[in-house]
Design a protein around this nucleic acid. Structure first.
Lengths: 203, 203
DNA sequence: GTCTATACGAAGATAGAC
DNA sequence: GTCTATCTTCGTATAGAC
């Protein structure tokens, strides 16, 4: 309790690196929000952060890994605590998530770019990011669907895994359409899906 | 019917250019299918076609415009005649389209990349392509939905425009998930949506 | 471990020769 | 109209100072 003992010599020097990495990441997020996901090269970020582009490569390995880190960190910061109430529908979950993402400039664009890269060969970082994310989201939403079904909020005759995949796909796709054309019926389409899933008894 | 009159001298010299452009486009499609949407640079295409990368820039203006041309031409060639039967559901339309797209290697990846680029600023060609495509698809499908509703194939109490946007979003998103994880319930989710839209009387 | 300096090859764009 | 030559910028890799 008195004086903090310094970390062991063999691993002590990690502290600075971790803090520095976080500092760079925070700045990179700002740069990203301002310049857009596309024009943000390693050199551009490095220049604005105040380091050389080689330093970024040192901390993050590659541009793509930096982009993944930026997205994960942006989402972590912008995201409120996960919705605890099990009676909230999957569509409402995606609605909340979409609203949060839209508040962070460039985040949806970055997500779209990462997913597109993941589809190409030779992009392991993006591929892993997208694959994991879809799998986790599908599992999380499927669990919620089953809970909703027990509570009578979602009709019992639909497959929970299919619903999860469908809701994610619809949410992603509608967000894209909305960015390209704000007149596209994003909310209406999402609400429609929600009503359809609620079953015949929906108000 | 006898002999084709050559085009007028003032515009005749276009003929060679148009033919050459088409020839380059055909080769570019093959190169694309083999190498993937990502690693296909202007130089790579030019090298395989047998011209310099500057020639491609001359014919297509920019890499992005070439990519848009490649996608449009690939889709035109792969697409069968449009489905005439007005009783085919929008979901079935997207299923057919998805099946055709999947037969052309790299086409879905290219589409995903173009849409992602369209979301970024400073990509007018991709932006125009994606905006137009979504608008056309929404209009086409909405008309079909209304027809389906009159025929009793789709429940009458849903908004046709919202259905169109929803079906497109679901189809695009599910195709992406399927590419990243073939175990994702793509068909099940699409069929689910189809059944939900059919209404309470669905078998 | 952290980071700078530097070099390399490849990319898209463009000016101007032919 | 077509293409060579060149410009700038990019991501990555390495060597070595601290």
């Amino acid at each position: 309790m008195a004086s903090e003992r310094p970390p062991s010599p063999t691993r002590g020097s990690y502290a600075k690196g971790v803090a520095r990495r976080q500092e760079i990441l925070d700045r990179a997020i700002e740069v990203f929000a301002q310049r857009g996901a596309d024009k943000t090269s390693l050199r551009a970020i490095a220049s604005e952060v105040g380091v050389t582009h080689a330093a970024l490569a040192h901390y993050f390995g590659s541009l793509e890994e930096l982009l993944v880190a930026v997205y994960r960190e942006s989402e972590r910061k912008g995201g409120r605590r996960p919705v605890a109430d099990p009676d909230v529908t999957p569509v409402e979950i995606m609605r909340i998530s979409a609203r949060e993402n839209r508040e962070v400039a460039g985040l949806v664009q970055l997500y779209s770019m990462l997913v597109a890269s993941a589809l190409e060969e030779g992009h392991p970082a993006a591929r892993e990011f997208a694959t994991d994310r879809f799998a986790q989201q599908r599992e999380k939403l499927a669990t919620r669907v089953r809970s909703n079904q027990r509570a009578g909020l979602i009709r019992a005759d639909v497959d929970a895994d299919a619903v999860a995949a469908l809701v994610i796909a619809a949410s992603d796709g509608l967000q894209t359409q909305w960015l390209l054309d704000p007149d596209a019926p994003q909310d209406a389409a999402l609400t429609l899906l929600e009503d359809l899933l609620a079953g015949p008894q929906h108000s």
